[in-house]
Design a protein around this nucleic acid. Sequence first.
DNA 1: GGAAATTAATCAAACGATTGATTAATTTTG
DNA 2: CAAAATTAATCAATCGTTTGATTAATTTCC
Lengths: 208, 208
Amino acid sequence: MKTEKVDKRLAILEAAEKLFCETGYEGTSTRQIAKESGANMAMINYYFGSKEGVFVEIMNERIAGFASQLKIINEDKISALEKLHKVIEGYVNRIMNNTAFHKMMHRELSLTQRPEMYDKIKDAMSHNMQLIDRIITDGIEDGSFNKVDVRMVIATIMGTVTNIVIAPHKVISCSNFDLSNPKDKKIIKDRAVTHLQDLTTVYLTTKR
Amino acid sequence: MKTEKVDKRLAILEAAEKLFCETGYEGTSTRQIAKESGANMAMINYYFGSKEGVFVEIMNERIAGFASQLKIINEDKISALEKLHKVIEGYVNRIMNNTAFHKMMHRELSLTQRPEMYDKIKDAMSHNMQLIDRIITDGIEDGSFNKVDVRMVIATIMGTVTNIVIAPHKVISCSNFDLSNPKDKKIIKDRAVTHLQDLTTVYLTTKR
DNA sequence: GGAAATTAATCAAACGATTGATTAATTTTG
DNA sequence: CAAAATTAATCAATCGTTTGATTAATTTCC
């Protein structure tokens, strides 16, 4: 039996992301990261230069990964509403498959101490925002959508998802409910998609 | 000229809340709090026992203050929709008049290291949730509202507001926009209320 | 009423523990 | 063997907290 080669670099990244999410950046010590990853403390600085280097690496990797998922939707020859529904489904799935990272990102967004990180996240989110903005604005211009406060609608879509991720108890009052349980996650994911698609359909297309 | 009596206890609480919001709980040192408040470091432990004691005190005070604002609305002899609109207006106003605290609260909600604090916040939010839940459920039962996923609608209302507070740039792309500017705040507050009232009206009452 | 005793508030200094980071030595790998 | 990877030991700095002393105000007592 061959012991699998453990990539210490990767192990550090994974352990750090887990800990950063659970206890925050300043709430996580390099010793904890070392212990959790099974690496020596010095390896953190060896590979990433510093604790913040680990953090930046995690954020960059994640953001880069997300960016590659985008853009395809807006090309299709489908209606604005269908486009929006596709985006919602993709967005909900992405966020809810990366709840830990999403929490970490939002926490960072609410702090003022690492402006470069704030800007980085802001820019990454802006892409999503512009994508949705484009779809809704197009829908309004071609007459298939009502005239609405586009930015507010976007805040509603994104805010709803974030709210579910950060405070799942708000949605499911069941005490032994667990987002890390795949079955529970699927249930809530489907409910979120259904709700948001239904909501946007009614709000954007109802003649009044 | 009489030098005003400075309440060090209060000064510590105010400075701590400001700093906790800006740089997080673990990101704020007791020395910073002492400096910002103009009090000696020992005063923190003298009055509150510990750094966490300050934090708990802030949360308790705030939550108690919020709790006293509630409950009146549900008594009025008005329609479910009017009740909901009142709640939305009150909720938006409260959150946006305490953006710093709201950020801090949400950050704490996304961490796992202080379970007692998590539960405390959760319970406080539950009251708001139950209030809205009651109104919408009543509206559904008396036939004035459509049958909807009530918890999801609540997540949408609360999530929208939180999203605006934490990521105002999502709503206003204007770069020199500032939530701490009363005029800017009023503008965004009104937009939020209008949007949420409009959204819920259409979504809950449109016959379909 | 005024000295004595008690209390609350404040301070500078220091405490032990922990932080992120670095060193120099050792092991592993190609 | 040389480069890369890994280790234990150590660093200065900072952390939250505690200390003993001092001040200022209040209460007690004769």
